[in-house]
Design a binder for these strands. Structure first.
Lengths: 212, 212
DNA sequence: CAATTTAATGACCCATCGGTCATTAGTCAA
DNA sequence: TTGACTAATGACCGATGGGTCATTAAATTG
């Protein structure tokens, strides 16, 4: 797991690289075992350092998780917002593009890990739940809200759908990501087919027939 | 938390009632704290007994969780299946009835607790994940599959929707239940409105316009 | 009212793990 | 080369919690 270890030396002083390496190692283990069940000692081993070293960079296990939220979500969520604002085209196309991007992010990165941990163990860390909500959820909901408003402005939205709960639109994507990580292996789903069904269903339900 | 305690006596011999009481106490604490973070000692206290007594009825913490799956899901899932089979009426009505029932079960009972625990900590207990899948998921998927087939037989299904992934239909309900339990309080959602939007969206996307 | 059975107890054992800190060693300036 | 600085170490501490078992006492039987 050590990265650029020059084999000759026992101790390596690499102050700049450590934080990110610790964080990456932690994410892998959290995904496998959950938060409480992952020992700081194992995170350290996976990052190629001793446990004490972790505490040079993060004040506590909880602080490490907070750093992970910042590291994994902040930049990605900003991108998401940008995507819709610069788009020119029909709502059907925008919805497709947006959901494709969401699925890619959720299924191909380790973003779900954070969500999984918060679902199962968030009760002990109200501050982290709050942070996650602010960083990920509010931004995400705003992005969807923008798409819906845009569709209405363009006259492509079905009547009575204007203040539909934004969570309804991404729920299947979130569930699919969680599903994959919980039932992976013994009940894997065809995520591409699922995504296409999802997009189709949303377009059908949300947009006027002549906007499809 | 003790139930029928006759106050005079220190020890109560109530062999029959213990298992269920232990289980109920455990479910409450698991919902609050998760599985790993809930001490058997606290479960025992909440059930009004000593820790050792728990081990008279359940071989281990894991066995207790398995018993919870059996207790909470088996009978309920059987009911779900029955519901659709005896129904006479349009698919629009059946879908509405079915989803109403699902939301009631997920939001008004402690069924989500089990799912939450499995999402966050299931990796340590592959046997429990498997059991959950068999007991809850396969039955649930079959129930939805039945509804879709029935709609098609009645000519009420949109073209190309016949082998839509059943998970897509209940995903928002599951997400809503989890959402409530994770973000309860600081970001509570209007679950009734959400459910109605959900039903509306599904009917719109799944059924032919003239079947609405 | 013994004698027997067994539900219930809780002190105890021991492995685990988050966090600390005195010690070690890599780096660099003078 | 040496001294100062500080990144890195890992033995250790203290708390925690799953699981055990010798002991206690409630019920039951004759």
């Amino acid at each position: 797991m050590t990265r650029d270890a020059e084999p000759g030396k026992k101790r390596q002083r690499r102050k700049d690289a450590r934080p990110q390496e610790i964080l990456d190692a932690a994410m892998v283990l959290w995904a496998e075992r959950g938060f409480a069940a992952t020992r700081l000692d194992d995170v350290a081993k996976a990052a190629g350092i001793a446990k004490g070293t972790v505490y040079l960079y993060y004040a506590s296990k909880e602080a490490l998780f907070e750093a992970a939220i910042q590291d994994r979500l902040v930049s990605v969520m900003r991108e998401h917002q940008g995507l819709s604002q610069s788009f020119e085209g029909s709502s059907a196309e925008l919805l497709t593009l947006f959901l494709n991007t969401v699925y890619a992010r959720l299924l191909k990165t380790d973003a779900v890990t954070l969500l999984k941990v918060l679902i199962g163990e968030g009760h002990h860390f109200p501050d982290l739940v709050k942070l996650y909500r602010e960083v990920a959820i509010e931004t995400g909901m705003a992005a969807i809200g923008f798409i819906v408003k845009r569709a209405q402005a363009r006259g492509e939205l079905r009547d009575g759908m204007s203040d539909l709960d934004a969570r309804l639109i991404i729920a299947p994507a979130i569930m699919a990501a969680i599903w994959q990580s919980v039932f992976a292996g013994e009940d894997a789903m065809d995520t591409d087919a699922f995504m296409n069904d999802h997009i189709h269903l949303i377009r059908q339900g949300l947009l006027k027939p002549d906007a499809l």
